[in-house]
């Protein structure tokens, strides 16, 4: 990016934010009218979206609990958004007290909100950074202070990579983020797709274009490429509702309607 480090970030409250719309779909109230207007339009096009968001969020929590079970005690959550109910640090700390979490988001409002929530929470921090600059994330003071890269780290990339178009080389970003992770670390990815939303695809694409962060839904093979060089754990890359469900799912007629591919992989070594 050409923007010098001291140039200010813009803050645009006149355009809907995906982070706040996502909160709305999850049933939260951390959003503005502009976000709700847009979120309702998307809902009209894709009535299952609330359920998709809930399923995606539930995958994140299952993935975190899985990683805690594997001994991971520190997490890097990129694209953390508005942390409504059930933040990663709450989930992780409930499963393993003392777990540490660094949240990363590019949305200034999401970051400011996270700061409010994390006030007085020594085990978690939020940084405003762009996934497009992995080194800025990895070398950030808070990252260095909270995360020990000599021990396994849980890298969470949930519902964020579809915000990066191919032109920005999202695969290179993931490679760079994975590179410093020691063996035994885990990477969780959930990624929006239109593979089973053929009828809604056009409208989804059009609506996504209106937000501050347009969406690139990717077919399964392209999502699988993000795990190159990593060992996918069972059951591999699947619909989000099918990844290690804790009880039978009755919410989708067919799992593909969940709209997200999800998988967790281990850093080999």
């Amino acid at each position: 990016m050409d923007r010098p480090d001291w140039a200010p970030e813009g803050i645009d409250l006149t355009r809907p934010s995906v982070a706040r719309a996502y909160d709305y779909w999850l049933g939260g109230s951390h959003n503005f009218a502009i976000d709700r207007d847009w979120a309702r339009q998307v809902l009209a096009a894709v009535p299952d979206l609330r359920l998709m968001a809930q399923a995606n969020r539930a995958f994140l929590h299952r993935a975190v609990r899985f990683m805690v079970d594997q001994g991971v005690r520190q997490f890097l959550d990129i694209g953390s958004g508005i942390p409504t109910v059930g933040n990663v640090h709450e989930i992780a700390q409930r499963a393993a007290p003392g777990s540490r979490v660094v949240y990363v988001d590019i949305d200034p409002v999401a970051v400011a909100h996270s700061e409010q929530i994390l006030k007085g929470e020594p085990g978690a921090a939020v940084i405003m950074a762009d996934l497009r600059q992995p080194s800025a994330v990895l070398t950030h003071r808070a990252t260095r202070a909270l995360l020990d890269f000599d021990r396994p780290v849980g890298l969470l990339l949930c519902s964020v990579l579809h915000a990066i178009p191919d032109a920005d080389d999202p695969y290179g970003m993931v490679r760079e983020l994975v590179k410093p992770l020691p063996p035994g670390s885990y990477v969780a990815i959930s990624h929006g797709t239109l593979d089973d939303l053929v009828e809604e695809a056009d409208e989804m694409t059009e609506l996504a274009g209106r937000t501050t962060t347009p969406i690139t839904g990717r077919p399964r093979a392209e999502v699988e490429r993000f795990f190159a060089g990593l060992e996918l754990v069972e059951p591999g890359l699947v619909w989000s509702v099918l990844w290690r469900p804790e009880e039978p799912d009755e919410t989708f007629e067919r799992p593909g309607r969940s709209g997200f591919y999800a998988g967790v992989a281990r850093v080999p070594g």
């Binding site: 970030e9 409250l13 951390h30 503005f32 409002v109 400011a112 909100h113 700061e115 409010q116």
Partner: peptide, 14 residues
């Protein structure tokens, strides 16, 4: 809280 966050973010940007 979201309004406060927006204000904070805007202040910070300014």
């Amino acid at each position: 809280s979201i309004r406060l966050a927006a204000l904070t973010a805007r202040d910070r940007a300014e």
